[in-house]
């Protein structure tokens, strides 16, 4: 049993480590991007899938992290300091903004986070003298972890791989921790959690701040990856793309968002090389996923897997009692 638990991750890590041997330079670059996006999308997946907080402004934290590296990087060139600063500043901004709107839920939360993200976008867009405005700015900081500057694509790839694996592992621990279980409980049933003695706002605030921090961390990596940042990184369209990656991968899982990120980044790079109509294709994917792909590709893959392996088929979950209410309560939030 124990061996089984470790087999899949080990295999996965092995593949990640060996991948550069078979990939082209472009492939290595693309995979690096996938891994960075995966960290970002996992951070969003954490609040959506485990806390039930659907944000449409999460790119703001990613973009903030990226800009911290770009802006602070012109003054001090220490990779550790910059990355930590990016995560901490994003986390603080998430915390403070969360203080204000964590008591909203559902569609209200979504609208408020969207507006907040657009505000940060507008600030970076308008502050031309500092941020270069719409043109964005180049990232001058060099990537150096103390043993020489990392300049090769492969070197960067390994750095991002480690960052991804560590992020994944930490999230894994988080969701199984008492705090993570509490967060999950809040998503399931807020009124019961309150009756049990949980202060649900604290939990939401903590998970939201952590999520913002992780998004900022991903943004910082992206700044090093792309060596250029622009306000688009904070735009709600980007938040929306991250949201669909979560959905495509499957809400409520940790791997799902990462897979969704991979699926999208690769698809985008593939399709963009053929046509300019990527936004439209992405829109169609959105609609199709919503109408036909409930549960995301991970779910579809699982269904196929279960079909192939009938003995693992899970007992159908038939609630004995009819669910209370007609669904509107949960929707009204």
């Amino acid at each position: 049993m124990r061996a089984n638990i470790w087999r899949t991750p080990t295999l996965f890590i092995a593949i990640l480590l060996l991948l550069p041997l078979i990939l082209t330079n472009y492939g290595v670059k693309l995979t690096s991007e996938v891994l960075i996006m995966a960290i970002f999308v996992m951070s969003l997946g954490l609040i959506i899938g485990f806390a039930g907080l659907v944000s449409l402004g999460h790119a703001a934290f990613f973009g903030l992290g990226a800009y911290v590296v770009a802006l602070l990087g012109t003054h001090l060139d220490n990779t550790y300091v910059l990355i930590i600063a990016a995560a901490v500043i994003s986390g603080i901004v998430a915390f403070v903004s969360g203080l204000l709107f964590i008591r909203s839920s559902g569609a209200y939360f979504l609208m408020i986070t969207l507006a907040f993200g657009q505000m940060l976008f507008a600030i970076f867009y308008k502050m031309e003298s500092v941020t270069g405005g719409a043109d964005g700015m180049a990232v001058s900081a060099s990537l150096n972890l103390g043993f020489g500057a990392i300049e090769s694509r492969v070197g960067f790839y390994y750095l991002v791989t480690i960052a991804f694996l560590v992020s994944y592992y930490l999230l894994r621990v988080f969701i199984s921790s008492p705090l993570g279980k509490g967060v999950r409980g809040i998503k399931e049933n807020e009124s019961r959690m309150t009756a049990l003695g949980y202060n649900i706002r604290h939990y939401k605030l903590i998970v939201y701040s952590l999520s913002g921090m992780l998004a900022g961390f991903a943004g910082a990596l992206y700044a090093y990856f792309n060596q250029y940042v622009s306000p688009d990184l904070l735009h709600w369209m980007f938040s929306g793309q991250a949201l669909i990656m979560v959905i495509v991968g499957g809400v409520g899982t940790l791997v799902g968002p990462a897979i969704g990120a991979g699926f999208f980044v690769i698809l985008q790079s593939y399709i963009s090389s053929y046509t300019d109509r990527w936004p439209m294709i992405m829109g169609v994917i959105f609609v199709a996923i919503v109408l036909y792909g409930r549960g995301g590709i991970l779910q579809i893959a699982m269904l196929l897997w279960n079909k192939l392996r009938p003995k693992r088929h899970k007992e159908e979950e038939t609630p004995i009692l009819p669910k209370e209410g007609n669904g509107f309560e949960s929707v009204k939030g």
Partner: peptide, 16 residues
């Protein structure tokens, strides 16, 4: 009645 789906659907449509 499905909040998240609605948002995604209209978001996708806005892209299109």
């Amino acid at each position: 009645g499905k909040e998240l789906e609605q948002v995604l659907l209209t978001f996708g449509l806005s892209f299109i």
